[in-house]
């Protein structure tokens, strides 16, 4: 089976007063129709990696790579117009903050319908039916009412579910989910991840799940990359995360409280800067 996504030597660079800095430093990965988790602390380059794939890094940021291929398509060679037809329809991304990614002047119903129409032509009644079904699938109890609301009228958790509905409805080949459930509580989080999981299994969708929650990615992915300072420091099978070798990964794992916690103090990572 040929890879769904191939990345070689990806570099994301920003100019700063002290000269250009690489926030992603030569990352390579190959993704099949599988679930890949990317974990690491904030600032480690997870979102920049996800956004690079969709060529969503804004100037003055610059992306270079020896290879960035999706399903045989050279993404770096696509025009902006070609990229627009790939985004949403074939590769979707659930962004970290739903407030900034939903269109503030369009109702939720219209936005989901628009996402659906990038994928196929449907009549009014069909669109409404599919949209309602998708909102129900992300566990929104009163979808009829929510269809008519604007993004500022819904809570963070609801906004996140709307985003997920919008990104899943075109049934993309690859879903990049950037901290998709951070505003949801554990039981809703599990339900939403199961919907995503179902699409992976049924439709063979590829998934890149970006999160700082190590437990979450090890529960929902097949393979995990641990990032730090723009680089992958460790790669492992998800079920083996607890046996991670790298001191950084081990430090992260140790700092997580457990349900049967009895430590008086949690171990913390040593940092360069004195106070964080």
């Amino acid at each position: 089976m040929s890879a769904l996504l191939e990345i070689e030597n990806l570099r994301v660079t920003f100019p700063t007063a002290r000269g250009p800095i690489d926030v992603v430093k030569g990352l390579s990965l190959t993704l099949g129709r599988e679930r890949l988790g990317i974990v690491g602390e904030s600032g480690s380059g997870k979102s920049m990696t996800g956004r690079s794939i969709l060529r969503l890094i804004r100037a003055p940021g610059k992306v270079t790579a020896d290879k960035l291929r999706f399903d045989g398509i050279d993404l770096l060679a696509q025009s902006e117009r070609q990229m627009r037809s790939i985004r949403g329809a074939r590769i979707s991304m659930v962004m970290q903050d739903p407030k900034f990614s939903l269109n503030p002047v369009m109702t939720i119903g219209d936005q989901i319908a628009e996402a659906l129409l990038t994928h196929q032509k449907l009549g009014r009644a069909d669109i409404r039916g599919r949209t309602l079904a998708m909102l129900e699938a992300v566990r929104i109890n009163d979808p009829e009412r929510v269809l008519g609301l604007y993004p500022h009228e819904v809570s963070g958790g609801m906004g996140q579910r709307v985003m997920i509905a919008m990104m899943l409805i075109p049934e993309p080949d690859l879903l990049i989910a950037d901290e998709p459930t951070s505003a949801l509580d554990v039981s809703v989080q599990a339900q939403v991840l199961e919907i995503i999981d179902d699409l992976v299994k049924r439709k063979g969708m590829g998934l890149i799940l970006i999160s700082h929650d190590l437990d979450l990615v090890s529960a929902y992915c097949d393979r995990i990359l641990v990032m730090r300072g723009g680089e992958v420091v460790e790669e492992c099978v998800a079920g083996e995360l607890r046996n991670a070798k790298h001191p950084y990964t081990r430090g992260l794992l140790a700092s997580i409280p457990r349900l049967d916690e009895d430590r008086e103090e949690l171990p913390v990572l040593q940092r360069d800067e004195a106070s964080t």
């Binding site: 554990v186 039981s187 989080q189 437990d215 090890s218 529960a219 607890r242 794992l253 349900l259 009895d262």
Partner: peptide, 24 residues
């Protein structure tokens, strides 16, 4: 909570989801 002895069905569901993530 630590002993998994919450009574209400919803509390038990929450505990189950928290415990189902593999712990290290």
């Amino acid at each position: 909570l630590k002993r998994g002895e919450l009574q209400d069905p919803y509390s038990r569901e929450l505990t189950r989801f928290s415990a189902s993530h593999p712990k290290t």
